[in-house]
Simulated assay, not measured.
Amino acid sequence: MDKLDLTKTDKTYYGASKKPELIALPVLPYLQMTGSGSPESDAFKAAIEAMYTAAYSIKALCKQAEQDFTVAKLEGLWWVEDMSLDPLETPRELWQWTLLIRQPDYVTAAIAEEGLQTAMKKKPHMPVERVSFGQLSEGTCVQMLHVGPFSTEPETLAIMYAYIEEQGLAISGKHHEIYLSDFRKTAEESLRTILRYPVSK
């Protein structure tokens, strides 16, 4: 039985380069969980654990049905409630986020719900009840690979902002990060993160 690995089969989604580029994305299915607060907080760490617990429960169901897959990379949407403020100058405790783990197209709402119920029973101490299954439609996006610590992201974002302006585009959605590296285990200077923004004319 072949195992689906989205990071290998979807080069557009996971294959950003070190230069900004325009891509077009279809509507895609995800596990998702929304919260607020600093990424260093215990609540954020618990949210990550809950997301992976849910993802692996769904993977187990699909494997039983001979549709095994590799659990996809963790992703995050980030924003602040007052969009007139610079997020990087806003206290991290006020940051809003939605964690995402992309799902294969064959994962249905029914499969996801069964997996979530199993995960809640298996790990009742985790906030799995806050994980849901849904879709994200970002359409046309600008993305770029950032290599290094999160603290130097503004340098990469500045290049992206200039490119967006040059193309006559405007940001039309939330700051999106795809964590190609496990930031819990990888040295900061080696972190690889895709930065993405939905854009429109």
Rank of each mutant, 00 (worst) to 15 (best):
D2E: 10
K3N: 06
L4A: 01
L4V: 02
D5K: 01
D5H: 02
L6I: 13
K8D: 05
K11I: 05
Y14A: 00
Y14H: 03
K18P: 04
K19P: 03
P20A: 02
E21C: 11
L25T: 08
V27Q: 14
L31T: 09
Q32G: 11
M33F: 09
M33N: 04
T34Q: 08
S36L: 09
P39N: 05
E40Q: 12
D42R: 15
D42W: 15
A43F: 12
K45L: 10
A46E: 13
A50Y: 03
A50I: 06
M51H: 11
M51R: 09
Y52M: 03
Y52R: 02
A54L: 07
I58L: 15
L61D: 07
C62V: 02
C62F: 06
A65T: 08
V71F: 01
V71Y: 05
A72N: 15
K73G: 12
G76F: 06
G76T: 09
W78Q: 05
W79H: 08
E81L: 06
M83A: 14
S84T: 15
L85W: 08
L88Y: 11
T90P: 11
P91G: 08
P91V: 03
R92D: 13
W95E: 06
W97D: 03
T98A: 02
T98Y: 03
L99T: 11
D105A: 14
Y106H: 07
T108Y: 05
T108P: 06
A110G: 03
I111V: 12
E114A: 12
Q117E: 15
M120S: 15
K121N: 14
K122R: 15
P124M: 14
M126P: 13
M126Y: 15
P127F: 08
S132E: 13
G134L: 03
Q135R: 10
S137R: 11
E138Y: 13
G139Y: 02
C141M: 04
V142S: 05
V142P: 05
L145T: 03
H146T: 02
V147P: 00
P149M: 00
F150A: 07
T152I: 04
T152W: 00
T156M: 04
T156F: 09
L157E: 14
Y161H: 14
Y163F: 14
I164K: 14
I164Y: 08
I164P: 13
E165I: 13
E166C: 10
L169Q: 09
I171W: 10
G173L: 03
K174A: 11
H175C: 07
H176V: 00
E177Q: 08
D182F: 06
F183C: 12
K185I: 00
K185E: 04
T186C: 01
E188W: 01
E189T: 05
L191R: 00
T193F: 01
T193W: 03
I194E: 12
V199P: 09
S200G: 10
